[in-house]
Design a protein around this nucleic acid. Structure first.
Length: 725
DNA sequence: TCGAGATTCCTTTTT
DNA sequence: GGAATCTCGA
């Protein structure tokens, strides 16, 4: 007890207020770097230590598994004893846990599976096909998006209003069919987890009463990211008795496009008039310069709750701004900067390189590789979303649940075993007519002898294979990881991918091996679930960001979205151009630019010591060159905070001096030499430079190169010993 | 049924 | 520009 009091005494006044308040309902508006996680963890410890809540009576909700893990370990550090039974998890994880415990009450099969977005898309496509939707009226991706949108809003298919609009009514029909199919297959998508958990409360008063009794206090992190159904779920759970503390920052709301509602912050105050609001405005993370820039940018948004972040720090290096010729130059500059930072003793893992869209990462990666700088990309294609991994998991899912149609479809013909589109179509139509799963349809057709020849034999063999692997049906006493291994080998997946060519195959095999490794962690879990079920549900609810490589000393590359919640000494943000950041797509969405600006604010405030922004005057995107003006966000930063770094070039490249020429066809000889306009090159005497222009043809081809230290020179390609760098 | 060329798509995406 | 998906011929 005295321990936690001491720790809380080290917090600043508003933080202490937020931690110790007796108010039952608290909204903590916490600016970037103001210690919101600290407040949350300390409040949990305070509630427990003062006896206002038992560990069992605390629920803490986050959005990512990573955040949940982090919170758990930090709470454990604060408390003298291991807090047993505390509910710390993601919305989806907690919902999953509830549904597993009360599957009967929400009308789900005991072994229901979580459907990830790729499977979801497949199901949607299948339904669009089956319903024979008039050609191209409905796009599957968009339909998936629509369904998720409905679910985020808490809207089931039956409640979607019927309309005369052809498009909308088809959407409604597809949604209805999709729900039916999920139900039949025992599949639950991400939105469904929340929806069912909400219905669990609504339809089962005794269950709700039980949990309202159990929990004294619920705490929510990143509250600005909650959507309607998540709030509704919280609201019902908390009722009139359970305490609720939420922490959020309206300025860091960057998931509006996914249904997040900042308004939920107001909603609490409406629902609970006694709500106390605490603002945390002192920033402990960044230098004054960085903070001023962030404040200046975000002040251009009008709809704000209004916070003014301040810091005791009063200095800081200026923000560097580099205007690159093109994305190659930009990447080269960033790589060079990082290299010299590392030479100066900076640790690679204290450096982050952020960008707006994943497509930007390739060029940046290449530059880092050239500079031999260790890096690691966060996000991008997640581990459990990789093709080979998903195939292994699909086999496992089918072993766990024969009715998992999504898994069935994925692997029935992978590796190819002679059951092609025709046969699968037959299975589908039978399944539809009989209202059964694809697995049962296969059985039925085999019995009736309607699945003959090669397809029939393969289908039978396939079913036997799955059955033989099922630990429950056979006597095999395989451990989970051994089962994984067997699956990879006996199903032929390993050989299947080996055909792909050396490099790719190796990484595929490695990833599959990684599944085997990951499964080991579930072999001796205690609980109601079998190891297989535990592993599968975890796999679908966890992005699978490698835990092992976490602490490797490498530069972090990620999108701005992925960077939220993290902090780094040195931050680079690349691609500050109109149409890229703010993104083109945001420009015609209501309040789209505001959200982009918040994203920019998030990016800037990741930096503790030093921030570098870059933009390219010309950027090759999707195969053609684009010229965009520097991002408006740059102008919004007071110029006295910025130190502009131009490439060392005597003449500033303008459209007429350089861009005009960019549009001209490049002389053949240059391409043959492996160069293009904008290529970074090295000359034995003049040093490093960038090719600005080229003229002539064949042996007479000359290039204009801007050297870092020697100014701009025109060289004959034939004689100048230029090498690409 | 399979695999190679053709065509298409391309913002972010914690779950 | 590149992957991912689709289509068509063998």
């Amino acid at each position: 007890m005295s321990d936690i009091v001491e720790k809380i005494a080290q917090l600043n006044a508003p933080q202490q207020q937020a931690v110790k308040t007796d108010s039952k309902h608290v909204v903590v508006l916490a600016g970037a770097g103001s210690g919101k996680t600290r407040v949350l963890t300390h409040r949990i410890a305070w509630l427990v230590e003062t006896g206002q809540a038992t560990p069992h009576g605390v629920m803490a909700v986050t959005f990512t598994n990573k955040a949940a893990r982090e919170m758990k370990s930090r709470v454990e550090e604060l408390l003298p004893h291991q807090p047993y039974g505390m509910w710390i998890g993601t919305f989806h994880g907690i919902a999953h846990r509830l549904l597993k415990a009360h599957w009967r009450a929400v009308n789900l099969p005991e072994n229901f599976q979580v459907l990830d977005s790729d499977d979801q898309l497949r199901l949607v496509k299948r339904i669009i096909r089956e319903l024979a939707v008039p050609d191209d009226l409905i796009d599957a991706k968009q339909m998936q998006w629509t369904i998720n949108g409905y679910k985020d809003e808490g809207l089931r298919a039956q409640y979607v209003p019927e309309t005369a609009d052809v498009h909308l009514s088809w959407q409604r029909r597809i949604y209805v069919a999709y729900e039916a199919l999920c139900f039949r297959s025992g599949l639950v998508d991400f939105g469904e987890l929340l929806l069912r958990a909400h219905e669990l409360w609504l339809n089962n008063p005794t269950v709700l009463a039980h949990y309202q009794q159990q929990f004294q206090h619920v705490l929510v992190d990143e509250f600005q990211d909650t959507n309607r159904i998540q709030y509704a779920w919280l609201r019902v759970l908390c009722g009139d008795t359970v305490g609720l503390t939420v922490v959020g920052d309206d300025d860091q709301s960057i998931y509006g496009w996914r249904g997040a509602r900042v308004e939920n912050i107001w909603q609490i105050q409406d629902d609970y008039p006694d709500t106390e609001m605490v603002k945390l405005e002192q920033n402990y993370r960044s230098t004054a310069v960085i903070l001023k820039a962030a404040n200046a940018v975000i002040s251009n948004n009008s709809k704000r709750l209004g916070k003014d972040l301040w810091t005791e720090d009063d200095g800081g290096e200026p923000i560097r701004l580099y205007a690159a010729y093109n994305e190659q130059d930009e990447a080269g500059y960033i790589a060079d900067s990082i290299e010299s930072q590392l030479d100066g003793g900076v640790i690679a893992s204290d450096v982050a390189l952020l960008y707006r869209s994943n497509a930007q990462s390739r060029v940046l990666e290449e530059a880092l590789i050239r500079g031999q700088i260790p890096y690691r990309i966060y996000g991008g294609v997640r581990f459990y979303e990789r093709l080979e991994v998903r195939n292994v998991l699909a086999y496992l899912r089918l072993i766990a649940n024969r009715n998992d149609d999504a898994a069935f479809e994925r692997v029935i013909n992978v590796p190819a075993r002679g059951i092609g589109a025709k046969s699968v179509e037959l299975l589908r139509s039978t399944a539809r007519d009989e209202g059964c799963s694809l697995w049962d349809a296969t059985l039925l057709l085999l019995q009736k002898g309607q699945l003959k020849g090669r397809a029939g034999g393969s289908a039978h063999a396939f079913q036997e294979l799955i059955k033989s692997l099922d630990p429950q049906a056979s006597e095999s006493e395989l451990t989970l990881s051994a089962l994984c291994k067997v699956v990879i080998e006996t199903t032929g997946l390993a050989q299947h991918f080996e055909k792909e060519g050396a490099d790719k195959a190796r990484s595929r095999l490695e990833n599959m091996q990684e599944v085997v490794n990951a499964s080991r962690n579930y072999e001796d879990v205690a609980g109601e679930l079998t190891p297989l079920d535990a592993f599968l549900s975890e796999a679908s609810l966890d992005a699978g960001e490698g835990q092992a490589a976490e602490h490797e000393d490498s530069v972090h590359l990620m999108t701005l979205h992925a960077a939220k919640g993290l902090e780094f000494d040195h931050v680079f943000i690349a691609g500050l151009e109109e149409n890229l950041f703010p993104h083109r797509m945001s420009l015609d969405v209501r309040e789209g630019v505001d959200e982009e600006r918040r994203l920019c604010y998030v990016g800037i405030t990741r930096a503790k010591k030093h921030l570098c922004l870059t933009y390219a005057e010309s950027r090759r995107l999707y195969g053609n060159d684009n010229r965009n003006r520097p991002s408006r966000f740059i102008e919004e930063i007071p110029s006295e905070l910025i130190e502009a770094v131009r490439p060392t070039l005597s003449v500033k490249p303008t459209f007429s001096s350089m861009g005009g020429r960019l549009a001209e066809p490049m002389p053949m000889a240059m391409g043959q030499a492996g160069f293009q306009l904008g290529s970074a090159v090295r000359h034995p005497i003049f040093g490093d430079g960038i090719i600005l222009a080229a003229a002539g043809a064949g042996a007479n081809t000359s290039v204009t190169v801007a050297f870092e230290n020697e100014g701009t020179k025109e060289l004959m390609l034939q004689y100048a010993k230029l090498t690409a760098i």
